[in-house]
Design a protein around this nucleic acid. Structure first.
Lengths: 203, 203, 203, 203
DNA sequence: CATGAATGAGATTTCATTCAT
DNA sequence: AATGAATGAAATCTCATTCAT
């Protein structure tokens, strides 16, 4: 019988993860020491280690949440009824990704997640699953476009979805590293490029 | 071993960079210690520090070369005469990027470069310059498409180029983290998606 | 071992400083490595670095205590009532300085303090303050001699105090480097020399 | 039969010692690396090691020259005919010591010499010899004062000389660490204090 | 449940010295 | 005689993790 409520435990976990996330975003994962996390959370080393058994476990917990919200949103857009045209869908998802990449936006952790996934099996698991899920959603979208007759019946949805997948990371890199992308431009860009891809239904 | 040829010095630098690159690719930048580099290069600590005055300087030297070859190739494709259609251009650059992302391909370092660029000013310089240059090349390509009448005159080339930019990082992430992209698929995917974007000239 | 008393922390600090002081005196500041201090204190690296954030901070802490006791004693002598004659005062302070310069006397660190003060701003602060304070005390003594009519009214106390200041370092150098000064000799020397300076009151 | 003239060898030695001395004075002995000396001398490592078989040998060579000139001057003053009164002698030697303690004066090395002498046998030899010689000169001076009837016949010249010895290091410490001693003050100070010690011959 | 002092392996970097050329 | 590339031991300091209280 636990001496402390489930709720208390959950609050502590959150407190630690909030602290870690803030520092990871501000300083980078590698430059954040456990001591930084203790200080940011206002907890002792022992307290933190009661909830997470290693720094890696904290990193995993944080990275596994990086694209959750974005994927939820993408799912909504892809499954919307009536079917959204590609330029509108891409515009919306990109605008959202931009918004989540600001000052202390969670998406600032994405590149670190990608990098870590290549050398840490545990993290690889989370990140690979995330990427695969996002990609599958894009593929589902292409399927819908084909089913709706908006793309030729012989389209390879797997392949086309894999291509569309790049739009978001592409804009994120520009946002995070060049910091010169604004949502208005995103809108115009996707419209311009995809007008041809998805021509308005002929009268 | 004094009064050594310029060539010898250059060979040593290369020896060190080759060692560092190999380890960075194999283990990741952060997990590679200077000792690892000494061992891989077969040199002593002092020898390495004669050529590079810090680990960061080595990291910078390596990262600054990551996309050089790819950009050279992209430039050739973009400036090709006659103008290459987008599906062919994208297919070719993506196939090349895939090839450079294998087992010990230099592009495996790209995500680490992106991540490091966000927290290290020096590295940010290199990486930002690289991304900007690549993007400018894509923008130039869109300009050519517009000039050739293959895209509407009111296309925003800045915006469209920024969107196309994402194709390569998008495929790279899938290659590096999911490892399930094959060049044939890339080809089919880009063709399918971009057939609409760049319809064959009407008779 | 958490929630430890203030006293415990103070004891640890002292333990570290005692270890450092012993080694500094025995081997010299530069020849004492942090490892030496860890070993002498019987503590780990991390433990020592919890209390002092660099070797320099330890050096400063030690050097700042080198002449404390001696200055306290000098102050007593200078302010003694009735006024002590110079030969007696000098004899006493010198005898004390000799005593503090033995085998593991703290004054063995004085020359290292002087040397370090010339190139390290932080240490310069402590050492300069110490020297100035000692000198001011000597100057105060000269003032008292003048006020008591034992030195001519037109004496420049600043200047005379600065000259008297040299007596102690002079004897210390002989003690530390030649190791051939004995307190009896000190006594005779100061008496001989200063008999003229401070003639016994005429009847 | 040497391939190179004695003169050439001597010039090289001097070149190295000049470089070392300049750096030792500017940065301190410990903070001067051999590489610093190579650079300052414009010579290679090998060249320097042909003339001195270790850094310590260079340090010794430099430190052994620190007080040479000052001692020569003191000897002149002590042996002057007619006998100089103490206030004049002290004033002169102190003024000279002040002059030699400026910006790149050789006497800036004295405290480092004292400190090193306590832990390095070789250096101890030089420094101890120097101090002893200086002190002996002061003792000889006291002998002359006694012989001339300027000090009582029962004066202990050994002891009195040891006391006088401190005047110069005392002023040097103030000059080097407080940097607030000016020769005029030195003059007034020694006169004030020593007027009593050495009263003008009675008429 | 929580504390936080302590651990100690390991990281980067420096530097006196050597020796093949 | 001179070069200077190379050596490699050693120095300082950090940091994830543990465990007695």
């Amino acid at each position: 019988m636990p001496r402390v409520s489930e709720e208390h435990l959950e609050r502590r976990r959150r407190q630690i993860l909030d602290a870690a996330r803030a520092r990871f975003i501000r300083q980078g994962v590698h430059a954040t020491s456990m001591q930084d996390i203790f200080a940011e959370a206002g907890l002792s080393a022992g307290a933190v280690y009661r909830y997470f058994k290693s720094k890696n476990e904290i990193i995993e917990a944080i990275l596994s949440t990086v694209v959750g919200d974005l994927h939820t949103y993408l799912t909504e857009l892809v499954d919307a009824d009536p079917l959204l045209p590609p330029d509108e869908l891409i515009e919306r998802i990109t605008v959202r990704a931009m918004a989540m990449s600001g000052e202390d936006g969670i998406l600032r952790l994405a590149p670190q997640g990608w990098a870590l996934a290549m050398y840490d099996a545990e993290i690889h698991g989370y990140v690979a699953a995330t990427i695969r899920t996002l990609r599958d959603t894009w593929i589902r979208y292409v399927h819908r476009l084909v089913d709706a007759g908006r793309l030729p019946a012989d389209t390879d949805p797997e392949a086309a979805g894999r291509t569309l997948f790049g739009v978001v990371p592409g804009f994120m890199l520009q946002r995070l590293i060049l910091d010169d992308v604004d949502p208005g431009q995103v809108r115009r860009g996707t419209q311009a490029l995809l007008a041809g891809l998805y021509p308005p239904p002929k009268p």
